[in-house]
């Protein structure tokens, strides 16, 4: 489903890193892991990613701040899926304003998350093609 896609996982929780990594790799993705938003920003400076899966609440630099920086300051058009331990609807306005393309509650449903990432990557490619 995600064969050869480079995906950055950003989460300070080792357990979440392990689960996300397993699910994405099982679906063919090539993953890199960052422990917080600051590391995520450093990663996207040096490597191209097809999508980012980013926890919202993290130390150093949180997911909202990191997404805002990547999308609006750096101007990078990378699909970002937020992960939250809260109710997604409660935080709808917040993650949207931060530039996240979608947000999913934890613990996530693996097939739903993978399908969502595929759709966002495909939409992103189509948008880039249409603006050529």
């Amino acid at each position: 489903m995600l064969e050869g896609k480079n995906i950055l996982i950003v989460d300070d929780n080792k357990l979440n890193q392990k689960i996300l990594g397993f699910v994405l790799e099982k679906n063919g993705a090539v993953i890199k892991v960052a422990d917080n938003g600051l590391e995520a920003v450093e990663c996207v400076l040096f490597q191209r990613f097809d999508a980012i899966v980013m926890d919202i609440q993290m130390p150093e630099l949180g997911g909202l701040e990191a997404s805002r920086y990547i999308k609006f300051e750096m101007g990078l058009n990378i699909p970002i899926v937020g992960l939250t331990a809260n109710n997604v609807e409660d935080e709808n306005a917040t993650w949207t304003a931060a530039g996240m393309d979608m947000c999913v509650s934890k613990p996530f449903d693996p097939p739903v998350l993978c399908e969502l990432i595929v759709q966002l990557i495909e939409n992103n490619i189509a948008c880039q093609y249409n603006t050529l």
Partner: peptide, 9 residues
Amino acid sequence: HFLKSSAGI
């Protein structure tokens, strides 16, 4: 909040 994430798994 941090622990909640692990406890959901």
